[in-house]
Design a protein around this nucleic acid. Structure first.
Lengths: 360, 360
DNA sequence: TTGTACGCGTTATCAG
DNA sequence: CTGATAACGCGTACAA
């Protein structure tokens, strides 16, 4: 079966419903009925039609169907960077969930740029997708009106809050608080935090920092700004740099909350370069529980954000919006706001809780 | 501007060319001309039309245009697993390249399954894409006829070779040979290889193993099957297991070629668990030069496969095929076969070459 | 149970 | 330079 001349057709191009109809000696409508599993078709005709379809190698033309039906079966997923484990994971899960619901996903990395994020919202693909799952990093509360779009939209993350759209968030504050408390419970007294975004009010950096503060406060420890190492980016190199800057200033914490796992990996590196040991000298906790975290040395204790639930929820909510049904059990004209709870996965970069075994 | 009632239109739905034409007092064709930057349109009408477009908030309906034009501007990228750094990186680069050429990418993880890979080739999205970049892992030379598809296809990787389709490959043999030779040059005499796929004749595992053998041979060392640790999967846990199995049998190499970086990370872990040091006791080289490799401890010497070139080449070749032009400088009805050369990135998991500094 | 005819929003042809 | 009008391939009232 190569390119041109298939047996039945005179033309070289791909067969259409009309061709099938002709070959089977029925009308287009009947072919359509068979293709779409319409109930009331006699076995005889169904057989004929299927045979013709088989012989001609017919496949429905999706764009044409889309044009007719007014939807495309595609959703877009806008994320900052596909090479970050967190987003790669999220994308993978979203694709999987969408597939279960019969939708396809157009992944669109916005590459840490404001224009990229705005284009994802208002760009030209607009008409070729049914909806958008949107994870902004650059846009903030000032850009709320950008988010007023006339198609189904689910926002993932914490840079923006509003009751004007559906939102799936992770428990950043609680997660960071939990991490900080855990460090303190295992004996740390000078807990540093790596990767903050000074001046930012929302977004995961700010929320995680807030959790860190709450953790300190509940334990009765003071917040010491010198133990806070900002970093705009969250790649590993940034973790190395931030931790180096602390240690090189002679600021030596006994515990570190890194705002994601890649930063944490960098922190481990930096600590070891300075001739110290984890967790004996310094304990480290990461965020995201990425695949890597268990293979760093030492393996990394990390906050797991429940990405699978995020993916499931966002896709389902979006699908409901596309179908015009009210998602989950929200009331009419109300928007979804769901937090996905996170959990602490204990590995070897932190010391044992007093009187406990370390989980591996 | 919310859902319903925009100012000009009577209907609630999105405006069409017809609406614009009406509003501007011209014909549909003229609107089309303006939208598509047709040269011969008077400034006056162009102005009128643009004004109407602006006012109505008109956007072209891509599916409709696609139906008319017969293409979709979308290509598909089928890869085994988006969460593997190698493929995440490749996807990211392909998306970027495609965007430069005005195309969008549908990423399709085949999830290590044969059916997934076959579906990517023959599945229902067939009609909504213009072409496919295909990186199979399960399909082999026995499945060559599956690859005879009637749409533009570029195969990436080394599981399948044929002059029946365009192919972009990386230099696996040469890379592994280079790695092995480097270990030997830095004093290793018992070099193990981790992650082979026994029985496999093609595919990167087999090719990299072949390179390893060539490296040994050129150095006059014997091939010792006990130093070969197979592993079907290439995640880090597999590296841990494979290396453990070697060490636990009392087989202690002084150098290891891991067939990818994740395996290598596992190998480092295993070695350290066994109380040995890298590179003093055992040197380790990985494959893929993933972002992680520089933040393992010790940082990982690795073969860099030149993914950017792979992405560039595959997208460009595919685009040429879609446009019906002969890609690169191949002759009529000839297929592209290009190898992208790899290079060795030296870090701290290997010892210094005699008389040389270690690059960092 | 099946067939006819029309429209989805574009672009292309070909007169004007 | 611009305007009717016919496709593109499919789904669907409506009729038979």
């Amino acid at each position: 079966m190569s390119l041109a001349a298939s047996p039945g057709t005179g033309r070289g191009s791909t067969p259409t419903m009309k061709d099938v109809a002709q070959a089977a000696g029925v009308s287009v409508k009947t072919v359509s009925n068979v293709v779409n599993d319409y109930e009331f078709v006699s076995e005889a005709t169904r057989g004929k039609v299927n045979k013709a379809i088989e012989e001609l190698g017919y496949r429905v033309n999706v764009p044409a169907r889309n044009l007719r039906l007014g939807y495309t079966g595609m959703i877009s997923l806008a994320i900052p960077d596909l090479t970050m484990p967190y987003f790669a994971q999220l994308s993978s899960l979203v694709i999987e969930e969408a597939k279960k619901l019969g939708m396809r996903v157009l992944v669109e990395p916005t590459l840490y740029s404001r224009e990229g994020e705005i284009e994802a919202l208002h760009g030209s693909q607009r008409s070729m997708i049914d909806g958008l799952i949107y994870s902004p990093l650059e846009l903030g509360m000032d850009d709320l009106d950008q988010l007023r779009v006339d198609y189904p939209l689910v926002v993932v993350g914490e840079r923006i809050f509003s009751d004007q759209f559906d939102h799936v968030a992770t428990e950043n504050v609680e997660g960071a608080k939990h991490a900080t408390a855990y460090l303190i419970n295992t004996g740390c007294r000078r807990v540093a935090v790596i990767g903050t975004h000074p001046g930012e009010k929302l977004g995961s950096a700010a929320l995680r920092l807030e959790g860190y503060r709450q953790g300190l406060e509940e334990a009765g420890l003071d917040y010491d700004p010198r133990l806070v190492a900002p970093s705009r980016m969250w790649h590993r190199i940034d973790g190395v740099n931030a931790m180096n800057s602390l240690l090189d200033q002679g600021i030596v914490p006994d515990g570190v909350v890194a705002l994601n796992d890649m930063l944490a990996a960098g922190v481990l590196h930096s600590i070891q370069m300075h001739g110290m040991s984890v967790p004996d000298d310094i304990s480290v906790i990461g965020f995201d529980n990425s695949d890597d975290s268990q293979y760093l040395s030492p393996s990394l204790t990390s906050i797991s954000p429940g990405l699978k639930a995020v993916a499931r929820l966002s896709v389902r909510v979006l699908k409901d919006r596309i179908n015009g049904v009210q998602p989950l059990n929200t009331k009419e004209s109300q928007h979804v706001f769901r937090k996905v709870s996170s959990s602490l996965v204990v590995r070897n970069s932190t010391r044992a809780l007093p009187g406990n075994e370390i989980a591996v």
